[in-house]
Write a protein that binds this DNA or RNA. Structure first.
Lengths: 328, 328
DNA sequence: CTGAAAGCGCTTACAG
DNA sequence: CTGAAAGCGCTTACAG
């Protein structure tokens, strides 16, 4: 240890750099070490440090699709919760793909302090089997004894159905997501159930990937039938799908919301500025991230997790895509 | 080392697990070790390994805005080039922000095998000062002796100007990006220069962040003046800006491309499926990633870099937003 | 309060 | 071909 030379001794430096000086190092030595560190531009080697402690300070966030703006929010929540003692690093995979077990194994070899897994599939979790601290996010419908933080998407879907029914819609189309994530199954089931209860007929519009273009294309195919069949609203599994629908509705000269109401799910930033604004279910992404981060911190510290599965409220945001003259 | 017990000895295991058996380990021992590894589910501890070697196998990709779909492509290129010997990890920061030096310092403590920095600012690079293997991506206009892989955005802007001039436009608006990245300065300068040469007048439309909503709003403000002032095309610094313009043009009933031509820059996936498709400058993102990855590999291996600064061709993709009846 | 010592899990020359 | 040994840079009980 280089810094050792520039003052007194070896172990003391470690105490100082790791901030464990409480009644174990004299003020004089602390100052001396600090000075030496500054002079030499010394930075603790994380490798040695981690090896000695048995754990690195890395927290991996494993998410299927980083380019979804939704994650930017989740990430900022996680960072906020984690603070500076841990490094949040994103494991990246091909667009939209859950990482391969082999990829994850290589990451595990780095002995991370903890793992955050977003929108996991059941298969992925069984293959993962790690004893590392692990918290699941947005894992509605997944069976696991790992702590999780979820959105109450069922409630959101229910609110959506209620809103459309209140607007007088009798027949609506449902455009689903083609990714097999559990959350979409839950959204759909809850919507269908509530719509049925309220006497609103639902027509399945098939599924597309979470992609504006794919959704736009699907809508183009569907609309001719729908317009004669009395469909007056289309419910989309994600905001991204809804953008595609909005686009083609404009191109086709379909008036939104007068002729066709459109709704999304997620409340991405753009949903506020689209024209018309998109009525959608708001999912508190920042909060998801910060709660998950806090849970992970507890796990790492060996504290008991009192609330194993947390659920965040989903709320309905009404905008111009379903209501004329909305000021939202 | 646990695996040592299940066969012969210690160092041999290391040789086997790291694949350095070439004429140094007998076939029998290799088999024995492999069996033991399989039985015990042994995974090399990356921490110990890295410490002994003095370097980890981590490659950091530092990028300002992961939620841009452009990065998904860059990332897949990098992964392809890097192979499985290195772990590509994304350093994440608040949306659109270049990471703070303090963040990067913590990452450097992990002793990464190398660093990939995308769209850096000059300030960031001077603060970074690391001796780690480093390759810059999309750093047009940045002075640095680190190897870099860039796009020929100037050429792209020139092609754009030529295309619009050929379509008969005499007066065009230029909507710039508010981020201070060099690449935007280069795009703008090249476009203005070529437009001037071709006798096309350019009106500055100000700048907005890379955000559909912000661009849409800017267009709303601008259009009344432009429509009476004879502006027949708007050139956007990124595709994202162009999406905002397309949206509001539709809302305002402005016909694209008949009344107003719109162009972007980047060729994001959505530009192909938007309606109309967006005429834009295609930037080969996957190739950017794979070339940068390959350069970094050389650097890590201590090989000489023959071509310090590489430039990838930018091409013009003409679609319906500038040309009626385009089949593209 | 402080230093010497052992150990974290691996890798790499170095003798055999 | 193979094992004993030293060392990577830190941290953490443990004597003093």
């Amino acid at each position: 240890m280089v810094a050792a030379r520039a003052g007194v001794s070896a172990a003391t430096v470690s105490l100082v750099t790791s901030g464990k000086t409480a009644g174990r190092v004299s003020a004089g030595n602390i100052a001396r070490v600090d000075a030496a560190v500054a002079e030499l531009g010394y930075v603790v080697n994380g490798l040695g440090s981690s090896l000695a402690k048995g754990r690195s300070s890395i927290v991996f966030l494993i998410a299927p699709d980083v380019s979804n703006p939704f994650y930017a929010k989740v990430i900022s929540g996680v960072r906020e919760a984690l603070g500076t003692d841990f490094q949040l690093l994103l494991s990246v995979t091909e667009a939209g793909q859950t990482p391969e077990p082999a990829d994850v194994r290589r990451l595990l070899a780095l002995r991370p302090a903890g793992l955050l897994v977003d929108a996991p599939s059941a298969r992925f979790l069984t293959e993962l089997r790690t004893s590392d601290p692990l918290v699941l996010l947005d894992a509605a419908g997944i069976e696991s004894d790992a702590p999780s933080v979820n959105f109450d998407v069922a409630r959101g879907a229910k609110l959506l159905a209620g809103h459309l029914a209140a607007q007088g819609h009798k027949k609506v189309g449902y455009l689903d997501s083609a990714t097999g994530t559990e959350t979409f199954r839950v959204r759909r089931a809850a919507f269908y159930h509530e719509a049925d209860r309220l006497g609103v007929a639902v027509v399945a519009a098939g599924t597309t990937t979470v992609d504006v273009g794919a959704a736009a294309f699907a809508f183009t195919k569907l609309w001719p039938d729908w317009s004669v069949g009395g469909v007056t609203a289309v419910v989309c599994a994600t905001d991204t799908h809804a953008y595609g629908v909005l686009q083609e509705a404009r191109v086709a000269g379909v008036r939104v919301p007068e002729t066709l109401a459109v709704t999304g799910f997620d409340d991405l930033p753009y949903s506020e500025t689209s024209n018309p604004g998109l009525t959608t279910v708001h999912l508190p992404a920042v909060e998801l991230g910060s709660l998950a981060g806090a849970q992970l911190l507890k796990l790492i510290a060996g504290e008991k997790i009192t609330e194993l599965h947390m659920t965040l409220e989903a709320t309905l945001v009404v905008r111009g895509s379903t209501v004329v003259d909305s000021e939202a």
